[in-house]
Design a protein around this nucleic acid. Structure first.
Lengths: 110, 110
DNA sequence: GCCGAAAGTTAGTTGACACTTACGTAAGTA
DNA sequence: TACTTACGTAAGTGTCAACTAACTTTCGGC
């Protein structure tokens, strides 16, 4: 799966966004993250962490028996850049170019 | 559903992102949008357009029997702002404040 | 009013996914 | 070695969403 695709899918789940905020500015072991979600099992959080890891939105570091997670700010920056480049002014300019090219073609044919 | 939630969910689908690029800088009737996706039925595109409309990522304008769609740039801007504010420096600062408050408490108790 | 074009809507199917329970595994400890 | 802790993983379940096929609605021309 494309990285942008997996990033959007990972962020589409509210719980995963909340997990991200918890590990945004500090490392936390999986158990402590799970403790913040009393309504779901630890297993569910572990699976969410796997999705976030696959999307490179968090990085994992092992410390003995524990696994410490923290947000990968670079990936979030990458997403912002994607939004800027894919739907920002650069795309706008490309579209306008394509349209004027279409008109040119129309003028030649007409 | 929260607006941010529906926005992420809408963008998580690659086909909907592609639809957005097609109506980014010009209005298009539903049939012309559907024509760009030969592998799925017109009905599927109509449903995708409904999801994009609910997420306020596109706006619809009726012209006789046709319905013209165009991207809502404001909503995309809103998403960028969300990324900036929710996971940007402002959240970073809040987290650091919360952490130092935690340490303060620890010092009082210890 | 009747017909056809453009589009939305509904019913039903299939696949994905968030979740739970149960089990497996690696690292530390007695 | 046996036990515990801190995890991940596998299997199964219910729900949701993307899709197709068939139908309905809305508008314009005759």
């Amino acid at each position: 799966m494309l990285l942008v695709d997996s990033t959007f899918k990972a962020l589409a789940e509210p719980r995963r966004r909340e997990i991200l905020t918890h590990v945004w500015s500090r490392e936390l072991p999986a158990a402590q993250i799970a403790a913040r979600f009393p309504d779901v099992t630890r297993s569910a959080i572990s699976q969410h962490l796997g999705v976030l890891r696959d999307a490179q939105l968090v990085v994992e570091r092992r410390d003995g028996v524990r696994r410490l997670y923290r947000a990968n700010h670079a990936q979030m920056t990458r997403l912002r850049h994607f939004l800027d480049e894919y739907w920002g002014d650069s795309l706008e300019r490309l579209r306008l170019l394509a349209e004027s090219a279409e008109r040119e073609k129309g003028n030649v044919n007409g």
